[in-house]
Design a protein around this nucleic acid. Structure first.
Length: 423
RNA sequence: GGUGGGCUGCCCGAGUGGCUAAAGGGGGCGGGCUGUAAACCCGCUGGCUUACGCCUACGUUGGUUCGAAUCCAACGCCCACCA
């Protein structure tokens, strides 16, 4: 199977500019790039598809460039956005670039002939003089053509929101990036989400008009969807981040583990490097033994390993087993703290274990419940557990309430844990 | 600037003097079923209280009344139409 056929099979190809791109990718080694806008200090799983896209090209022998939009991030891409974006400060952009660069480095290889390159367009865009830019670059853009593009037409038609000159100029900057990377690294292919098509094609036009004597190419990925129509990548807690401080590896693992049967086969293709044979076997298991959720387990395992590494995956799996396997007996303080490392906790005095403190009162006092009434309702409806055993309304704290030397594990409902630490 | 309509609990929305802590829906939370799923079923969803009950709450402030989300006045904000 050729590389492009594999991409097609994985459902990763939305549009390409040339039908012969696939053949060329077999016979020549490309330098290609994908841009990432530093609008936050971490990437989220929406960025994972293009990022892994770069990694796939690298595995096929091509040389990937990850471009940080240090300059373009300060302008804001208007493509398919309904409203003008607020500007972020230079300091914010710098901090965001640093955070994101770390994450890029995890997924790409920086060794060998086709070692990945990380660049920041701030380094060249900020040196341009306005007049030179307008003469040399701006001259090649037709405002008529820009206004006709889908990606910004809605903004032009919407009188309430409109579009500023700043955002309108964005495609020029991204186009210039492509030109710059061609001149500096011989970069001939740009990849990105389907919303980037217009910007990428604009860059190709610019290289041609600037007299570049080589074909440049575009490849876009399809938009990720969910079978139930809700937005991919969001949970109750908001975005799923790649930064372990923002979304713990445990939460990350759980996110993938909880994907719907209907979506999992597609995600296995898009987000893992597993082989066609293995993925097709997993497809089969979704149909024949959905209750085993073999495909979801494999998906969660693979993606967590790719993003967070073996060690974090191991901890996430261990925590999952303890929380959903149910048995906490025999674990000591250290093991509990390890397993429940991203669970909130409260500090308590040993005197509360004397036998005259109601568990309910202790929980309210330490803020686990907003009010006593709420706590009572929770217990009365059978939703509160101490060390995985359902508690009664009049339960008092004693030494027997402890799970280990000094820790009691509280659970609200199925998934909400809390540690009480006694000292 | 004029005229009309509106502002109710996390959100939407009914209520137009006492039966209203306020219908109904959504969301959230809990329980059941299950695969840590979907669908479905049940319960809870202002605070204190074991409970009787008390307190707080229908844009803001003041008034009428035995009694106000509901009537009156002023103010604030939002929307529509006119200028």
């Amino acid at each position: 199977m050729s590389f492009i056929d594999e991409l097609e099979w994985r459902g990763l190809v939305h549009q390409t500019t040339h039908d012969d791109l696939g053949a060329r990718l077999e016979s020549e080694l490309f330098t290609l790039y994908c841009g990432f806008d530093p609008t936050a200090d971490s990437l989220h799983i929406g960025h994972l598809l293009p990022l892994m896209g770069l990694a796939r090209f690298q595995r096929a022998g091509h040389r990937p460039i990850a471009l940080m939009g240090g300059a373009t991030g300060m302008i804001g891409d208007p493509s398919f956005k309904s409203a003008e974006r607020s500007l972020i400060t230079l300091e914010e952009v710098k901090r965001n670039v640093e955070g994101i660069e770390q994450q890029l480095r995890r997924l790409l290889s920086f060794e060998g002939d086709n070692a990945a390159i990380v660049v920041n367009n701030y380094d060249w865009l900020c040196q341009l003089s306005l007049v030179d830019f307008l003469r040399d670059v701006g001259k090649h853009f037709s405002v008529n053509a820009m206004m006709a593009k889908d990606a910004i037409r809605t903004r032009l038609e919407d009188r309430d929101h409109g579009i500023s000159f700043t955002e309108f100029s964005y495609p020029l900057l991204q186009s210039y990036d492509f030109l710059h990377l061609f001149n500096t690294y011989g970069c001939r292919l740009q990849i990105g989400g389907s919303d980037q098509w217009g910007n990428i094609v604009a860059g190709m036009d610019l290289t041609r008009r600037m007299g570049v004597d080589a074909a440049t190419y575009a490849l876009t990925f399809p938009l990720l969807t969910k079978s139930d129509g809700t937005k991919f990548g969001k949970t109750e807690g908001g975005n799923v981040w790649l930064d372990p401080e923002k979304t713990s590896p445990y939460q990350f693992y759980q996110f993938w583990l909880n994907q719907a049967d209907a979506d999992t086969p597609r995600y296995l293709r898009s987000f893992t490097f597993l082989s066609k044979e293995e993925i097709e076997a997993l497809d089969e298991s979704v149909t024949t033994a959905p209750e085993k959720r073999e495909a979801q387990h494999r998906l969660a395992e693979e993606v967590t390993r790719i993003v967070h590494g073996d060690e974090a995956l191991d901890a996430a799996v261990k925590a999952t087993k303890a929380m959903f396997g149910g048995d906490l007996a025999g674990l000591d303080d250290a093991a509990l703290l390890d397993i429940f490392s991203d669970v909130p906790s409260s500090e308590h005095s040993r005197s509360e274990l004397a036998g005259d403190t109601l568990l309910l009162d202790a929980l309210v006092e330490h803020g686990l419940f907003k009010s006593k009434g709420e706590a009572r309702r929770m217990i009365q409806s059978g939703g509160l557990y101490l060390n995985n055993e359902r508690v009664a309304i009049d339960l008092k704290l004693t030494e027997a309430s402890l799970c280990s030397e000094g820790i009691a594990v509280i659970r609200k409902g199925k998934k909400h844990y809390h540690l009480m630490k006694f000292q």
